[in-house]
């Protein structure tokens, strides 16, 4: 013991010093914690007041039969509202509509955005103009977009019908908004028009973050355009695509304004989404308890999706990004 210590002075010397440093560091961290919390208070308060309290209130209200007038609800019905959800053909159809919109977005809207992003990443005359043009719809409010398209698809004097008439196909349609079997696809079309620019910009940014060396190297190795895309660009765009898909799905689940103004969910509920149904029950039929149950169902669906998506799909993108207090130093 004595021998080793004298023979190895370094170890003897550093031992206590190191543990001292750790102790000091821990103490500093403890001291740091209070100011951090103090600065968080306003944000936490706002978060609690504007996010947590309404969620809790909605969850509470969803257990009552309540018309929304005066004070707090009193007619407790337990889980009746949720049981009713599972047998409500309108709500079940909402789920189906949501799924269709999600699948179509993933299959049509996002590839379209990706294609345009790659195209606009090429050397191209007026590239900036195209970028602005494609992004412009995203800047418009949803309400204005919807009003615009009610005019475009107006059955008699709408632009869509005028164009069809020019091509001698005036009777083909343009009553698509009035047809329960087509209306959901019109909604999807308008959604795509509105949001593809946003996803395009995401992809464009992602693409520009890929170092030119990699594509050059691929070219030198003799890779063709498709091979470069398949084996270099696409994998490196992975994180962007996963985020974009996530936003698109959450957006589809919450879709409201656009549908409300464009179709009010009609005809005969054919384009109704969960949020529209919630509004109908809450503010048209004054069944606030049931409407709250719908909002809670929406919340749970989105939450489960978000957690599962992060756990299984985005795991590799966020590895190491998850921080705990002081975790970065470990």
């Amino acid at each position: 013991m004595l021998l080793t210590s004298s023979a190895d002075p370094d170890r003897v010397g550093t031992g206590p010093v190191r543990s001292d440093a750790v102790r000091r560091q821990r103490a500093r961290r403890r001291r740091v914690r209070w100011p951090v919390l103090a600065f968080l208070v306003p944000a936490l308060l706002l978060f609690g007041l504007l996010v947590l309290v309404p969620i809790i209130l909605a969850a509470y209200t969803s257990l009552f039969k309540w018309n929304g007038f005066g004070g707090l609800p009193t007619n407790f019905v337990g889980l009746d509202n949720f049981r009713r959800l599972l047998t409500d053909p309108i709500f079940l159809a909402d789920l189906w509509h949501g799924l269709i919109l999600i699948v179509l977005s993933a299959a049509v809207q996002l590839p379209l955005a990706l294609g345009l992003a790659l195209l606009l990443n090429q050397r191209l005359r007026g590239r900036g103009v195209y970028r602005v043009l494609f992004f412009a719809p995203y800047v418009l409010s949803e309400v204005i977009t919807a009003v615009l398209f009610t005019m475009v698809f107006s059955p008699n004097r709408g632009l869509a019908n005028q164009v069809l008439r020019v091509f001698g196909a005036g009777d083909v349609g343009a009553t698509w908004l009035a047809d329960p079997s087509t209306v959901l696809y019109v909604v999807f079309l308008v959604m795509t028009w509105k949001y593809f620019g946003f996803h395009m910009i995401l992809y464009l940014t992602g693409r520009q973050n890929i170092p030119a060396e990699l594509t050059e190297a691929a070219a030198i190795d003799g890779a063709g355009d498709w091979q470069t895309f398949r084996h270099v660009t696409l994998p490196l765009l992975g994180p962007t695509i996963r985020v974009s898909l996530f936003l698109s799905v959450i957006g589809s689940i919450q879709l409201f304004d656009l549908v409300w103004v464009l179709t009010v969910g009609g005809p005969v509920h054919a384009s109704e989404t969960m949020a529209v149904t919630m509004f109908q029950y809450g503010f048209r039929r004054y069944e606030v308890g049931y409407a709250s149950a719908i909002s809670i169902a929406m919340f749970v669906i989105s939450l489960v999706f978000a957690l599962a998506y992060q756990r299984f799909v985005m795991r590799r993108d966020i590895e190491g990004a998850l921080t705990t207090m002081g975790g970065g130093q470990r």
Partner: peptide
């Protein structure tokens, strides 16, 4: 993570805001 958590909270707000007006 940043993006997704924020949109998650946004969602929570959206679904409850109808009752919070």
């Amino acid at each position: 993570m940043h993006v997704s958590r924020r949109s998650l909270l946004g969602l929570a707000g959206a679904s409850a805001s109808a009752l919070a007006l």
